[in-house]
Design a protein around this nucleic acid. Structure first.
Lengths: 152, 152
DNA sequence: CCGTATCCATTCCGATACTG
DNA sequence: CAGTATCGGAATGGATACGG
């Protein structure tokens, strides 16, 4: 039977997974951040079959994560991250940070270009700047929250 | 042919995807954060087939993301997030945050339990606290970084 | 209530050959 | 170089029936 789709899920997590819940797509985005732009670059750096790459690129373009930009002097084009696509950097880094925290070695360090110092690990911060643990937070429906805020 | 495996990839991102690059696994973890603990709870809240749920739960346990805890007075057990599993909260929230930033409505708000105020959006911060954009950062091999640090 | 076992349709993945 | 077309095998997903 057909695989269940989460496109119209009310949960933003499930909806996002429709976009990036696929391994190849994530890896393609990673390579896009690494500088890959051409079809052949993705193909070589990922070792993925052409047909699969074609489908994935199309999907990412359709989702507004990549966009095709024409190349002057060539009939072909390149794939560039859109604003939306660049927003995935945070997600990718969160995943990387999690993976490194768990047993593995740490082959990469994220550094500030300006002073070459490592960037702080991602963490939650309260409105006043306090760092928050997962247990200190709660996910509430937006509607309920705005009602509570109004009452205040 | 067999699907390519990224278990031994040198990239922590690819390795992590082996663990959480699957839609059902992520959704199961989400439900675990939401409070689901029993097999039947996951089954009902996700509407997933039993056999698939069985496989996914086993995988998550094998990966050290969930653990089985015995239930007193019952022959059965519950599934609880491990420390490693709880670390995924940041990843899930990063994905949710990204999904919300892109066109969709924002059905949920993450609030501080203490003062009920919304938690700050996730962002990168330099060592001195400055907020950083993706373009201001660079991912460098750990070895290279420690060499540079030593030279300083 | 918590799984396991089996069956079938669909989808996916990789290789290869082919086109402009 | 950048795809498209096709194919076989593998894995996945869902339904259902069964067992402790």
């Amino acid at each position: 039977m057909k695989r269940k789709s989460f496109e119209n899920a009310e949960c933003p997590l499930a909806r996002s997974l429709e976009a990036i819940g696929d391994t190849w797509s994530v890896l393609i985005v990673r390579q896009a951040f690494a500088g890959d732009r051409r079809f052949g670059e993705f193909e070589k750096s990922l070792g993925v079959a052409k047909n699969i790459l074609t489908v994935r690129l199309r999907k990412l373009v359709a989702l507004g994560i990549l966009e095709q930009v024409p190349v002057e002097g060539s009939a072909h084009h390149e794939y560039a991250l859109t604003e939306k696509g660049r927003g995935l950097n945070l997600v990718l880094m969160a995943i990387r940070q999690w993976g490194e925290g768990c047993g593995g070695d740490t082959p990469y360090v994220l550094v500030d270009k300006r002073d070459r110092k490592p960037v702080k690990p991602l963490a939650f911060h309260a409105h006043d700047g306090r760092e928050l643990a997962a247990e200190d937070m709660e996910l509430v429906p937006a509607e309920e929250f705005s009602r509570a805020a109004r009452r205040k």
